[in-house]
Amino acid sequence: MKNDRRGFLFAAGALCAGALLPAHAAAQLEVQQAGTLRVAVYADFAPYSVRGKGVDIALAQALAERLGLRAEIVEFPADENMGDDLRNMVWRGHYLGRRPADVMLHVPVDAQFAAQNDKVAIFAPYHLETMAIARNPARVPTVAGSAANAFEVFTREKIGVELDTHASDFMLNVLNGRLRDNVVHFRSINEAVAAMGRNEVSAVMGPRSQLEASLKEHSGFELNALNMPEMRVSGWPLGMAVKADHKELAASLSAALADLQRSGELGRIFAAHGVTHRVP
Protein backbone atom coordinates (compact mmCIF):
# COMPACT_ATOMS: atom_id res chain seq x y z
CA MET A 1 0.00 0.00 0.00
CA LYS A 2 1.91 3.03 -1.14
CA ASN A 3 -0.25 5.82 0.12
CA ASP A 4 -2.22 4.00 2.66
CA ARG A 5 0.82 4.75 2.85
CA ARG A 6 1.11 5.05 -1.01
CA GLY A 7 -0.22 1.79 0.88
CA PHE A 8 3.09 -8.27 15.84
CA LEU A 9 5.03 -8.42 18.31
CA PHE A 10 5.90 -6.55 21.43
CA ALA A 11 9.37 -7.53 22.60
CA ALA A 12 9.82 -7.80 26.34
CA GLY A 13 11.26 -4.61 27.77
CA ALA A 14 12.64 -3.33 31.04
CA LEU A 15 10.76 -0.03 31.19
CA CYS A 16 8.50 0.69 34.10
CA ALA A 17 5.41 2.78 33.39
CA GLY A 18 6.40 6.42 32.93
CA ALA A 19 10.13 5.75 33.31
CA LEU A 20 12.89 6.81 30.96
CA LEU A 21 15.50 4.39 29.72
CA PRO A 22 18.61 4.74 31.90
CA ALA A 23 21.39 6.76 30.30
CA HIS A 24 23.80 3.82 30.09
CA ALA A 25 21.14 1.68 28.39
CA ALA A 26 20.27 4.47 25.93
CA ALA A 27 23.94 4.66 24.98
CA GLN A 28 23.87 1.01 23.96
CA LEU A 29 21.03 1.39 21.47
CA GLU A 30 21.87 1.08 17.76
CA VAL A 31 21.35 4.75 16.89
CA GLN A 32 23.50 6.68 14.44
CA GLN A 33 24.10 9.67 16.68
CA ALA A 34 24.49 9.38 20.43
CA GLY A 35 21.57 10.89 22.31
CA THR A 36 19.36 11.17 19.22
CA LEU A 37 16.60 9.02 17.72
CA ARG A 38 16.29 9.80 14.01
CA VAL A 39 12.71 9.01 12.96
CA ALA A 40 11.42 8.88 9.38
CA VAL A 41 7.80 9.89 8.72
CA TYR A 42 5.93 10.57 5.51
CA ALA A 43 5.75 14.20 4.38
CA ASP A 44 2.48 15.99 3.58
CA PHE A 45 0.43 13.21 5.14
CA ALA A 46 -2.20 14.72 7.44
CA PRO A 47 -3.14 13.87 10.13
CA TYR A 48 0.01 11.79 10.64
CA SER A 49 2.81 14.10 9.60
CA VAL A 50 2.75 17.47 7.88
CA ARG A 51 5.17 20.37 8.41
CA GLY A 52 6.29 19.30 11.86
CA LYS A 53 2.91 18.30 13.25
CA GLY A 54 0.77 15.16 13.34
CA VAL A 55 0.14 11.83 15.04
CA ASP A 56 3.37 10.16 13.89
CA ILE A 57 5.50 13.19 14.78
CA ALA A 58 4.01 13.37 18.28
CA LEU A 59 4.47 9.61 18.64
CA ALA A 60 8.12 9.87 17.53
CA GLN A 61 8.76 12.55 20.14
CA ALA A 62 7.05 10.49 22.87
CA LEU A 63 9.03 7.36 21.96
CA ALA A 64 12.32 9.25 21.98
CA GLU A 65 11.48 10.76 25.37
CA ARG A 66 10.75 7.29 26.80
CA LEU A 67 14.20 6.18 25.59
CA GLY A 68 15.93 9.23 27.07
CA LEU A 69 16.81 10.51 23.60
CA ARG A 70 16.15 13.61 21.52
CA ALA A 71 13.85 13.10 18.53
CA GLU A 72 15.15 14.14 15.10
CA ILE A 73 12.20 14.00 12.70
CA VAL A 74 12.79 13.41 8.97
CA GLU A 75 9.76 14.06 6.77
CA PHE A 76 10.30 12.39 3.41
CA PRO A 77 8.22 12.02 0.21
CA ALA A 78 6.82 8.59 -0.62
CA ASP A 79 8.61 6.69 -3.39
CA GLU A 80 6.99 4.30 -5.86
CA ASN A 81 6.26 1.69 -3.19
CA MET A 82 6.93 1.06 0.47
CA GLY A 83 9.75 -1.35 -0.28
CA ASP A 84 11.59 1.61 -1.82
CA ASP A 85 10.77 3.73 1.24
CA LEU A 86 12.22 1.11 3.58
CA ARG A 87 15.39 0.91 1.49
CA ASN A 88 15.78 4.70 1.33
CA MET A 89 14.87 5.49 4.92
CA VAL A 90 15.87 2.43 6.98
CA TRP A 91 18.44 0.00 5.68
CA ARG A 92 20.53 1.72 3.00
CA GLY A 93 19.81 5.39 2.42
CA HIS A 94 18.82 7.37 -0.66
CA TYR A 95 21.04 7.44 -3.73
CA LEU A 96 20.95 11.26 -3.64
CA GLY A 97 22.72 11.18 -0.31
CA ARG A 98 19.92 11.26 2.26
CA ARG A 99 21.06 9.06 5.11
CA PRO A 100 18.60 6.58 6.61
CA ALA A 101 16.76 7.00 9.89
CA ASP A 102 17.04 4.84 13.00
CA VAL A 103 13.35 3.96 12.74
CA MET A 104 10.51 4.55 10.29
CA LEU A 105 6.88 4.90 11.36
CA HIS A 106 3.62 4.08 9.55
CA VAL A 107 4.78 0.68 8.26
CA PRO A 108 2.11 -2.03 7.74
CA VAL A 109 2.65 -4.96 10.11
CA ASP A 110 1.99 -7.85 7.76
CA ALA A 111 3.80 -11.21 7.62
CA GLN A 112 3.92 -11.42 3.84
CA PHE A 113 5.13 -7.84 3.46
CA ALA A 114 7.75 -8.42 6.16
CA ALA A 115 9.01 -11.54 4.35
CA GLN A 116 9.48 -9.48 1.19
CA ASN A 117 11.54 -6.91 3.10
CA ASP A 118 13.92 -9.01 5.17
CA LYS A 119 16.56 -6.30 5.56
CA VAL A 120 14.29 -4.61 8.12
CA ALA A 121 12.44 -5.73 11.22
CA ILE A 122 8.77 -4.65 11.21
CA PHE A 123 7.19 -4.66 14.65
CA ALA A 124 5.13 -2.87 17.33
CA PRO A 125 1.72 -2.18 15.75
CA TYR A 126 0.36 1.02 17.26
CA HIS A 127 -2.88 1.66 15.33
CA LEU A 128 -5.37 -0.29 13.24
CA GLU A 129 -6.13 1.60 10.05
CA THR A 130 -9.32 0.67 8.18
CA MET A 131 -11.03 1.68 4.96
CA ALA A 132 -14.09 3.90 5.29
CA ILE A 133 -16.41 6.15 3.33
CA ALA A 134 -17.50 9.66 4.24
CA ARG A 135 -20.82 10.58 2.64
CA ASN A 136 -23.48 13.21 2.28
CA PRO A 137 -26.47 11.36 3.79
CA ALA A 138 -28.91 13.39 1.69
CA ARG A 139 -27.39 11.93 -1.49
CA VAL A 140 -25.84 8.61 -0.44
CA PRO A 141 -27.62 6.09 1.84
CA THR A 142 -25.81 4.10 4.54
CA VAL A 143 -23.11 1.98 2.91
CA ALA A 144 -23.52 -1.67 3.88
CA GLY A 145 -23.47 -5.13 2.34
CA SER A 146 -21.83 -6.12 -0.93
CA ALA A 147 -20.41 -3.62 -3.41
CA ALA A 148 -23.19 -4.46 -5.85
CA ASN A 149 -25.71 -3.11 -3.34
CA ALA A 150 -23.71 -0.48 -1.45
CA PHE A 151 -22.07 1.19 -4.45
CA GLU A 152 -24.94 1.12 -6.94
CA VAL A 153 -25.58 4.75 -5.96
CA PHE A 154 -22.27 5.71 -7.58
CA THR A 155 -23.62 4.90 -11.01
CA ARG A 156 -25.38 8.27 -10.49
CA GLU A 157 -23.39 10.09 -7.77
CA LYS A 158 -19.72 11.06 -7.84
CA ILE A 159 -17.22 9.74 -5.28
CA GLY A 160 -13.83 11.23 -4.49
CA VAL A 161 -10.59 9.29 -3.90
CA GLU A 162 -6.92 10.15 -3.52
CA LEU A 163 -4.63 9.41 -6.46
CA ASP A 164 -2.53 6.24 -6.42
CA THR A 165 -4.21 4.60 -3.45
CA HIS A 166 -6.07 1.41 -2.62
CA ALA A 167 -9.35 3.38 -2.70
CA SER A 168 -8.63 4.59 -6.22
CA ASP A 169 -7.75 1.11 -7.50
CA PHE A 170 -10.84 -0.36 -5.88
CA MET A 171 -13.32 2.20 -7.22
CA LEU A 172 -11.91 2.08 -10.76
CA ASN A 173 -12.20 -1.70 -10.96
CA VAL A 174 -15.16 -2.73 -8.78
CA LEU A 175 -18.36 -3.82 -10.54
CA ASN A 176 -16.33 -4.46 -13.70
CA GLY A 177 -15.41 -0.79 -13.98
CA ARG A 178 -19.01 0.47 -14.16
CA LEU A 179 -18.28 3.34 -11.75
CA ARG A 180 -15.19 4.74 -13.47
CA ASP A 181 -16.91 7.79 -14.94
CA ASN A 182 -18.07 8.91 -11.48
CA VAL A 183 -14.72 8.46 -9.69
CA VAL A 184 -13.03 11.84 -9.12
CA HIS A 185 -9.35 11.97 -8.16
CA PHE A 186 -7.74 14.43 -5.75
CA ARG A 187 -4.20 15.00 -4.50
CA SER A 188 -5.24 14.40 -0.89
CA ILE A 189 -8.12 13.28 1.30
CA ASN A 190 -8.39 16.84 2.62
CA GLU A 191 -8.99 18.14 -0.91
CA ALA A 192 -11.56 15.42 -1.58
CA VAL A 193 -13.50 16.18 1.60
CA ALA A 194 -13.39 19.90 0.80
CA ALA A 195 -14.89 19.10 -2.61
CA MET A 196 -17.65 17.16 -0.87
CA GLY A 197 -18.32 20.28 1.18
CA ARG A 198 -18.81 22.17 -2.11
CA ASN A 199 -21.17 19.42 -3.40
CA GLU A 200 -18.74 18.48 -6.16
CA VAL A 201 -18.78 14.86 -4.96
CA SER A 202 -21.30 13.13 -2.70
CA ALA A 203 -18.84 10.81 -0.92
CA VAL A 204 -15.12 10.20 -0.31
CA MET A 205 -13.46 6.82 0.18
CA GLY A 206 -10.14 6.35 1.98
CA PRO A 207 -8.42 5.39 5.24
CA ARG A 208 -10.69 6.10 8.19
CA SER A 209 -8.14 8.11 10.18
CA GLN A 210 -7.57 10.56 7.31
CA LEU A 211 -11.30 10.93 6.70
CA GLU A 212 -12.02 11.37 10.39
CA ALA A 213 -9.48 14.16 10.75
CA SER A 214 -10.63 15.92 7.57
CA LEU A 215 -14.27 15.86 8.63
CA LYS A 216 -13.48 18.01 11.68
CA GLU A 217 -13.76 21.05 9.40
CA HIS A 218 -17.15 20.02 8.00
CA SER A 219 -20.57 19.22 9.44
CA GLY A 220 -23.51 17.18 8.18
CA PHE A 221 -21.51 14.27 6.78
CA GLU A 222 -21.47 10.68 8.04
CA LEU A 223 -18.68 8.12 8.19
CA ASN A 224 -19.19 4.39 7.54
CA ALA A 225 -16.73 1.51 7.86
CA LEU A 226 -16.13 -0.54 4.71
CA ASN A 227 -15.83 -4.29 5.03
CA MET A 228 -17.28 -5.99 1.98
CA PRO A 229 -16.35 -9.28 0.30
CA GLU A 230 -15.11 -7.54 -2.86
CA MET A 231 -12.54 -5.49 -0.94
CA ARG A 232 -9.15 -7.17 -0.88
CA VAL A 233 -7.80 -5.03 1.96
CA SER A 234 -10.16 -3.46 4.48
CA GLY A 235 -7.73 -2.88 7.36
CA TRP A 236 -4.07 -3.10 8.36
CA PRO A 237 -2.02 -2.52 11.54
CA LEU A 238 0.47 0.34 11.45
CA GLY A 239 3.84 -0.24 13.08
CA MET A 240 7.48 0.69 12.73
CA ALA A 241 10.67 -0.63 11.12
CA VAL A 242 14.37 -0.68 12.00
CA LYS A 243 17.33 -2.46 10.42
CA ALA A 244 16.93 -6.22 10.76
CA ASP A 245 19.91 -6.63 13.10
CA HIS A 246 19.00 -3.73 15.43
CA LYS A 247 17.30 -6.00 17.93
CA GLU A 248 18.03 -3.92 21.03
CA LEU A 249 16.55 -0.80 19.45
CA ALA A 250 13.44 -2.73 18.34
CA ALA A 251 12.97 -4.18 21.84
CA SER A 252 13.37 -0.78 23.49
CA LEU A 253 10.94 0.91 21.07
CA SER A 254 8.42 -1.88 21.62
CA ALA A 255 8.66 -1.46 25.37
CA ALA A 256 8.34 2.32 25.07
CA LEU A 257 5.23 1.92 22.92
CA ALA A 258 3.70 -0.50 25.44
CA ASP A 259 4.31 2.12 28.13
CA LEU A 260 2.57 4.79 26.05
CA GLN A 261 -0.41 2.48 25.60
CA ARG A 262 -0.64 1.59 29.29
CA SER A 263 -0.48 5.22 30.37
CA GLY A 264 -3.16 6.32 27.90
CA GLU A 265 -0.76 8.77 26.24
CA LEU A 266 -1.01 7.00 22.87
CA GLY A 267 -4.79 7.45 22.80
CA ARG A 268 -4.38 11.10 23.78
CA ILE A 269 -1.93 11.67 20.91
CA PHE A 270 -4.47 10.37 18.39
CA ALA A 271 -7.35 12.30 19.98
CA ALA A 272 -5.37 15.56 19.87
CA HIS A 273 -5.21 15.19 16.08
CA GLY A 274 -8.88 14.35 15.59
CA VAL A 275 -8.43 10.59 15.23
CA THR A 276 -9.94 7.74 17.23
CA HIS A 277 -7.16 5.37 18.26
CA ARG A 278 -7.89 1.73 17.43
CA VAL A 279 -5.79 -0.95 19.09
CA PRO A 280 -4.53 -3.50 16.51
Rank of each mutant, 00 (worst) to 15 (best):
M1L: 10
M1S: 11
N3I: 00
D4H: 12
D4V: 11
G7V: 01
F10L: 14
A11C: 09
A11S: 13
A17L: 14
P22S: 04
H24P: 07
A25W: 07
A27C: 00
Q28W: 05
L29F: 05
Q33S: 11
G35W: 00
V39A: 03
A40P: 12
V41M: 04
D44E: 14
A46I: 11
I57E: 03
Q61C: 09
Q61S: 10
A64R: 06
E65I: 02
L67D: 04
L69E: 10
R70I: 07
R70C: 03
A71S: 00
A78W: 00
N81K: 04
M82S: 08
M82G: 09
M82V: 01
M82D: 03
D84P: 06
R87F: 07
V90Y: 03
W91Q: 02
R92L: 15
Y95K: 15
L96S: 14
L96V: 08
G97A: 01
R99T: 11
R99K: 14
V103H: 09
H106C: 15
D110V: 01
A111T: 08
Q112L: 12
A114S: 13
A115G: 07
A115E: 13
V120R: 05
A121M: 13
I122Q: 00
F123E: 06
A124P: 02
H127C: 10
M131W: 08
I133E: 00
A134K: 05
A134P: 03
R139C: 06
T142C: 12
V143P: 02
N149M: 06
T155S: 15
K158Q: 15
E162S: 11
L163R: 12
H166N: 11
A167W: 03
F170V: 07
M171R: 02
L172E: 14
L172N: 14
L172V: 00
R180Y: 05
N182A: 11
H185W: 09
F186A: 01
R187M: 12
R187S: 13
N190K: 15
A192I: 10
A194K: 14
A194H: 12
A195C: 12
A195P: 05
A195N: 11
M196H: 03
M196K: 08
G197V: 06
M205E: 10
L211N: 02
E212W: 06
E212G: 00
A213F: 06
S214A: 15
S214L: 12
L215Y: 00
L215H: 04
E217P: 03
G220K: 09
E222M: 12
P229D: 04
E230L: 08
E230F: 08
R232K: 13
L238S: 04
V242F: 05
D245Y: 10
D245F: 08
H246Y: 12
K247P: 01
A250F: 07
L253H: 04
S254E: 03
L257T: 06
A258I: 01
L260R: 07
G264E: 02
G267D: 13
G267R: 08
